[in-house]
Design a protein around this nucleic acid. Structure first.
Lengths: 352, 352
DNA sequence: GGGGGTCTTTAAAGCGCTTTAATTTCAGGT
DNA sequence: ACCTGAAATTAAAGCGCTTTAAAGACCCCC
């Protein structure tokens, strides 16, 4: 403890980081051998391995990654672009790390923020010589993404991309909203509104899912899309609007955040959920799962998405797959306490 | 567009990444000159600069960061450790990027997750040869952090660290809760409970802030600390508990998440806020700011914390500062709609 | 027309590691 | 003893960039 002795001018004396040579010198071997041992490459004898590992541990040696990366042809690095404020991305990242780990890749992260564009985030990843990029919900135009894919493998997560131009992993959003509609109709609802998620591919998909499902179930004339975006505020606005006019018996929202905003308005106005109105969110986010909120929601399987994304990248890198592939995962409806039969009214289920 | 011509066995032909030499060859200069130009180093003439920049742009050249980092002594890289699921960290990261940018540093991120320990996250950062580490809310024991600091400058953000062992940027949590208590007492409350945040330095600070403020205001005998943690669930549990027993006139919670859980329980139980009970959160998170929630909360200035953290790192790296420094930022109380005078009762303010 | 200066440009030596071909070592067979 | 081949080790050539000392170009002036 403490830094005994003299310190050089400026800055506390920090011990020079040990290098490969230092380890080699300590065990009396060549740097080459040490390198082989530390990377578990075949060659060195068991006895040698032992000695090297001990010496490395004693010195606290860690390979200088920049040097390794430079010397190695491969970097074994995957680059992940995300929005650090998106909770679903957070979940994905968690699983991405695991998935990458398990196939011997490292994952380096780069986030989009208010002031940091997707381009900038991607540049950073390229700078680190990532071998493949996993982009979570990118908003760049397809052409731009395609151009990037020409440089190196790109996996798009969570967003639909026009047919076969690159690897995509996403959940079937359209079908997901369909599940929600089905569920509500089964409960007897007919007057089902949808709070929209604004522009964007994902929002478009979910909106279409709602419209199609309604039509499929013969409720085409009841379609009711309420303007909104991806925030709680839009749920709040939608709620206030609905209260001013006339409540439907059920509402599906673009995502959980929106649903939570809406739910808040309803509860404060004394509307009983699900007694007077049923509500379905989308994302099955942690807040939806809270015991007291217990929001019925459509869940995307973050774990599987992450695994598939990493698998896609690895296939391109290590298994010569060339044809782009789209993985569409089935969403699942998680029924909790915000959905139930509609209140008695002319909207009760018709006897068939 | 499209990849005309033959492709090599396995994998679409991707053009080799251009190197410094390629740019040099194109302009008929030495790699050395090109390097100087691209880094805005003094030397090359204006005419040369122009030519080099054009050539580089035409080739789409980007320096290979691993090679640069290796060759350069400095990396100009700051490492940031965060928890990608923490929304406050997200905010900080946003500002950290900006702050780092403005002083010519890059920021590389490494996150803690369920399965990825702090140690692992830090290792990644060290691997990239970050010159200084900015750790957001680390939970490692002080000794470990100190050991790390001996290797290279470490800035701790948001957590108190025993006197003068390394750089710390945090907000005055104790004072922050004090502000909340003051505010409530000024409104006339005397029966003020506090929902705790569990173990951890931050939680301890806030708890102590509550206790001290209560004592300072002569309310030592009213101190009421309710067990809890940092989640919405703990707020929910606290709420249910309070409802079963007896409501205080005001509650302060460890953080906004906890407050939100509590608020939800109250509203559902028909308790009017702030009519029957005032509520103060901590963090001034985006959800607290939602129009409809409008939670009174104690805010930490993410921007300033980020700026100070980067400044601290840069001072150590570039300005030879050696003495560790603690920056304690004053929190501010943001009064919104969840606080008001207490309901009429024996708890109304005493006339002094 | 040669001596000094100022600008520009470049050769060459790394940065710390990986990798491959070549060398050394050693056991076993004759 | 000598040869052979397998196993273990190492020398040396990079990876793509930075950096510094030294060379080259150029101008001005006596």
């Amino acid at each position: 403890m403490g830094n005994g002795g003299m310190t050089r001018s400026g800055g506390t004396a920090r011990s020079r980081r040990p290098r490969l040579d230092d380890v080699a010198a300590r065990v009396g071997l060549s740097p080459a051998s040490v390198s082989l041992v530390l990377r578990n490459a075949p060659g060195p004898s068991e006895a040698t391995r032992e000695r090297v590992f001990r010496a490395a541990a004693e010195l606290g040696y860690r390979a200088d990654m920049t040097a390794s990366l430079l010397a190695r042809h491969r970097t074994n690095l995957l680059g992940g672009m995300l929005d650090v404020r998106n909770t679903f991305h957070a979940e994905l990242v968690d699983h991405l790390h695991e998935a990458a780990d398990s196939v011997g890749y490292d994952l380096v992260l780069s986030t989009v923020t208010r002031t940091r564009s997707e381009d900038r985030a991607v540049e950073t990843l390229l700078d680190f010589r990532c071998e493949a990029l996993i982009l979570l919900g990118p908003e760049a135009p397809t052409a731009r993404l395609a151009a990037l894919d020409r440089l190196q493998p790109v996996v798009i997560v969570g967003r639909r991309i026009p047919a076969g131009s690159m690897d995509v992993v996403r959940s079937a959003d359209q079908a997901g909203v369909g599940l929600a509609v089905d569920h509500l109709v089964e409960l007897g609802h007919r007057d089902i509104a949808y709070v929209d998620g604004g522009k964007g591919t994902i929002a478009a998909d979910r909106r279409r899912g709602y419209r199609r499902a309604m039509r499929r179930l013969g409720l085409g004339d009841r379609v009711n899309v309420i303007e909104g975006d991806r925030t709680e505020d839009s749920g709040i606005r939608a709620g206030q609007m609905l209260l001013r006019r006339r409540l439907p018996t059920a509402v599906i929202t673009f995502n959980d955040r929106c649903a939570l905003g809406l739910l808040d308005v309803l509860i404060r106005s004394g509307v009983h959920v699900p007694g007077e109105l049923s509500l379905v969110g989308y994302d099955d986010s942690p807040s939806a799962q809270l015991a007291h909120i217990s929001l019925t929601s459509v869940g995307q399987d973050a774990l599987k998405q992450a695994q598939q994304a990493v698998a896609a990248a690895v296939e391109r890198l290590d298994h010569d797959r060339r044809a782009p592939r789209e993985v569409v995962l089935p969403p699942r409806l998680v029924v909790r306490s915000t959905t139930g039969p509609p209140p008695d009214s002319q909207d009760r289920p018709r006897q068939r």
